[in-house]
Amino acid sequence: MKKRKLFTSAAVVLSTFLLLSGCGKGDSEGSGAKKSVELLNVSYDPTRELYQEYNKEFAKHWKEETGQKVTIKQSHGGSGSQARSVIDGLEADVVTLALAYDIDAIADQKLLNKDWINRFDDNSAPYTSTIVFLVRKGNPKGIKDWDDLTKKGVSVITPNPKTSGGARWNYLAAWGYALQKNNNDEEKAKQFVKDLYKNVEVLDSGARGATTTFVEKGIGDVLIAWENEALLSLKELGKDKFEIVNPSVSILAEPNVAVVDSVAKKKGTTKVAEAYLKYLYSDVGQEIAAKNYYRPRNKEIAAKYKDQFPDIKLFTIDDVFGSWRDTQEKHFNDGGVFDQIYSK
């Protein structure tokens, strides 16, 4: 009697589980059909507006080209955690993330080719950005360049490089500036970023979080931000409240894109996924990128938007740091330079 009851209850719970997992079945089916195809683009936070617009254009283009209907689903979050989701089984056909290191991590799990960065032009980065300063209207603290950020009484907002991809670009831009200024003296550069981070009051966990801390909550005198973020917040939250200051030197930030081969192969979407990313380099794609405040690679379109993107002396990761992998290890992993500047 008792045993039977036990068994029934076990059966009930188990069948619920099966039922639950049955719900998910529909998701993975139906992508083999030729008439229509579905892509999942796993991206990072600030590209929402960009891809919303781009997806519509690409769908139109693809329909004209092949007669096939393509729907693109978007997923956004912090770059690192998005990469982790893909590693843990989120079935992304393409990833468009904030930095190469995150895509490298996916490649480490053999989900895509280790040489992914050479698959598309320009390091597989169809658009770029850089790091600038956002200050309050009138620039009350008179911030002009990186040196001003280490001055006493200046409160700086930047996210935590441990959890935010954008924050790592910020940090590296500062480091690169300090190296150039001090004839590549690493100790001096370290002292410089240490002084800079002493002025940081809040280290939000993501780039958007830092922007809202600065913009909405009114904390800090200067926000170190992606250029595209700074331009967007000017547009969304008022030109009368903030202004952008361009530093003398900054970093060329390359947000990369890649096809996740293993997923695309399984879903049979390799061709369309590739076309999707390639179309980013087309005039249409570049124009959309520029409109959404990313610096286009295409020279002509860049010239068209030159008021929006002033000339800043930019250095690349390769120029100053070598590969992203080494950079990550040296600066941001546990015990790295970023940790050192905080331990006394």
């Binding site: 912090g78 690192g80 955690s81 990469a83 982790r84 590693i87 991590a105 480490d108 935590n160 441990k162 959890t163 966990s205 990550q328 941001f332 992993n333 546990d334």
Partner: peptide, 11 residues
């Protein structure tokens, strides 16, 4: 938060 920051390093 420390857990999150470890995860962000894929650790």
């Amino acid at each position: 938060f420390m857990i999150m920051s470890k995860l962000e390093q894929f650790d």
